[in-house]
C-alpha cells in the first residue's frame, strides 16, 4: 500500500492479508484503478452474485419464505418454492395479516378453489370489504 502505512501489529497483519489477496488478483493494486477494478468483490451487490457457491436469495430471512426474492439469475424460475406461494405467506409467516382477507369470519372460502397455489392461483377470489 502506498498511502496507508501500517503502524501496529494488527495493521501489519491486515496489510499482509490485503497484499496476499491483491497478488492473487493479478497485482491489481499497482494499476491506477477504481476500487471496483482493483478488487472485484468491492462493488458487487451482495446476494445477487451468480458465481458458484451457496445461493442466498436477496432479502432472505431466517423464515425461508420465498416469493418476493429473486433467484441467483435475478429471475424467479429457480426459487426453492414458487413465487405464487407468497399469496398465502403474508398471513402465515410474514406477520402481515392485513393484506389477506379474514378467512375465519368474512371470507372462509377465499382459497376454496385454489388447491395448489402454484397451479391454481388464478382461481383465488377477489374479496371486497
Amino acid at each position: 500500500m502506498d498511502h496507508l502505512k501500517a503502524i501496529n501489529q494488527k495493521a501489519r497483519r491486515i496489510q499482509a492479508h490485503v497484499g496476499a489477496s491483491v497478488a492473487a488478483n493479478g497485482g491489481a493494486a499497482h494499476a491506477p484503478a477504481s476500487p471496483a477494478a482493483s478488487d472485484p468483490d468491492a462493488l458487487d451487490v451482495v446476494g445477487l452474485e451468480s458465481r458458484q457457491g451457496p445461493h442466498i436469495p436477496l432479502g432472505c430471512s431466517l423464515v425461508f419464505a420465498p416469493g418476493w426474492e429473486v433467484d441467483s439469475t435475478g429471475g424467479t424460475a429457480g426459487l426453492c418454492q414458487p413465487v405464487e406461494r407468497d399469496l398465502f405467506d403474508c398471513h402465515l409467516a410474514c406477520f402481515w395479516p392485513a393484506h389477506v382477507p379474514d378467512q375465519l369470519n368474512h371470507a372462509p372460502d377465499w382459497t376454496g378453489k385454489c388447491a395448489a397455489a402454484q397451479k391454481d392461483w388464478r382461481k383465488i377470489d377477489l374479496i371486497f370489504p
Partner: peptide, 15 residues
C-alpha cells in the same frame, strides 16, 4: 492527482 486519489480510495476500502 487522479492516480493518488483512486489508489487512496482503494486502500481505504481494503482496510
Amino acid at each position: 492527482g487522479e492516480t493518488a486519489v483512486r489508489r487512496s480510495l482503494a486502500e481505504l476500502m481494503r482496510v
